[in-house]
Design a protein around this nucleic acid. Structure first.
Lengths: 174, 174
DNA sequence: GTTAGTGCAAACCTTTTGCAGCTCT
DNA sequence: AGAGCTGCAAAAGGTTTGCACTAAC
C-alpha cells in the first residue's frame, strides 16, 4: 500500500492516525483521480457515515502543510473548489481540457529546467510549484470545429440567433 | 495609454464601454501590482462611490472570458481570492515568497519549451497557462534561518514550548 | 429605442472557527 | 491521563444571481 509512506511520515511527526484520517488517506492515495473536498467527503462518508465534512477540510489542510499533498485548481474548470493529489509522483504539469474537463499530466524536462532557472536566477528556495494549462484536447478541437460550423449555418438561416453556449461545466453553483 | 488595446478589443466584440468599465480597465492596467476583486473595488470606489462590488466581479469575469486578463491565485498566499493581470505581457511564471508575499515574474525559455512540448505531445490547443512557484525568496531564507536558531535556543531553555508561528499572512478570513 | 449593463439585496458555495466531548498513544 | 482530534452548529469570505432601473450604442 503506497500510502504507508504517508502514514509513516505522519507518525514521525507525532500526528495521530485516527480512523478518519486513515480513511481519507486511503481515498486520496487510492482514487485514480483528483478529488476535491466535497467528493472526498462523499467517498469517506460511504465508509463512515459519521465522518464530518469539517474533518475532511482539517485533514486536507494538515496534509498540505505537512507537504504530503498538493493543492490544485485545475483552472477552475469544475468550480472554485480545490483538488488534491499526493506528492508521490514526480513534479508534473496539469493539462485541463476546458471543454470536456479531462486532465492530463505532463512530466518533462522543461519543468526541471524551469525549477533550476528560478532557483539560480532569484536565489529562490522552491517549496511548491503548480503548472496548469487550459485549452482544448485533440478530441474536443474536432468537436468544437463542428460546433462552429453548425453555428455559422444557423446564423445564415436564422439571423440574430445567439451562438450556442458551451456545454455547462459540472459546477453546482451556476 | 496601454489599455487602448483592451478597449478596442472590447468595442470590436460589441461590448459596451461603460464608465464603470473604463475605470476598472484603467485600474487593472495601470496599477503596477496584481489586484484582487476587493482591492480593485476599493480603488474603483474612490473614483466612483456608487460603483458596486458586483460590477467588479462581472467585469472581471467578462475580461477573463474575453481573454484580456489572466486570473492568478498566487499560491493562495493572501487568502482564497483571485488576482488579475492584463495579458499584455509575454507569458511568465509567478514566483511567490510564502514568507513575505513578494511576487516575482519569470520570463524564460523553459516556459515556451513547455508550451511547445505540450502542444506536440498531446495535440493540445493551449488557451491559458498558469505557472506559480511558492517558496522562500533569498531575503527570507536568511530571516528564516535566524528564526529557526532562535526557536532552537528557546527550546533548550524552556522545554515543550511550541515553535514560533510563521507570521500570519495578510488574510482577512483567519 | 433597444438591449446590454448596473445597483441592490439576497443567495450561494466553499471553507473556517469555537467549543464540548471523544479517542489515540 | 491528557493532548490532540472529532463532530456539531454557526459563521465567515469570496462570488454569483434575480430583478427593476439606467445608460451606451
Amino acid at each position: 500500500m503506497a500510502n504507508a509512506d504517508m502514514k509513516d511520515s505522519l507518525r514521525e511527526k507525532g500526528v495521530r492516525l485516527t480512523r478518519q484520517r486513515q480513511i481519507l488517506l486511503d481515498l486520496i492515495d487510492g482514487s485514480g483521480k483528483h478529488l476535491d473536498a466535497e467528493e472526498l467527503f462523499r467517498l469517506a462518508q460511504a465508509q463512515d457515515p459519521k465522518l464530518n465534512r469539517v474533518t475532511v477540510y482539517r485533514t486536507l489542510k494538515m496534509l498540505k502543510h505537512s507537504g504530503l499533498v498538493d493543492e490544485l485548481d485545475l483552472m477552475h474548470y469544475g468550480g472554485d473548489q480545490h483538488y488534491y493529489e499526493t506528492r508521490l509522483k514526480q513534479e508534473h504539469a496539469h493539462i485541463i481540457c476546458l471543454r470536456c474537463g479531462k486532465v492530463e499530466e505532463f512530466f518533462g524536462e522543461p519543468l526541471q529546467r524551469l525549477r533550476k532557472q528560478v532557483e539560480s536566477h532569484f536565489g529562490f528556495e522552491i517549496l511548491i510549484t503548480r503548472t496548469e494549462i487550459g485549452g482544448y484536447c485533440s478530441h474536443c478541437q474536432v468537436l468544437r470545429a463542428r460546433e462552429m460550423e453548425q453555428a455559422a449555418e444557423i446564423a445564415e438561416t436564422v439571423p440574430h440567433t445567439p451562438p450556442p453556449q458551451k456545454p455547462a461545466p459540472a459546477r453546482k453553483r451556476g
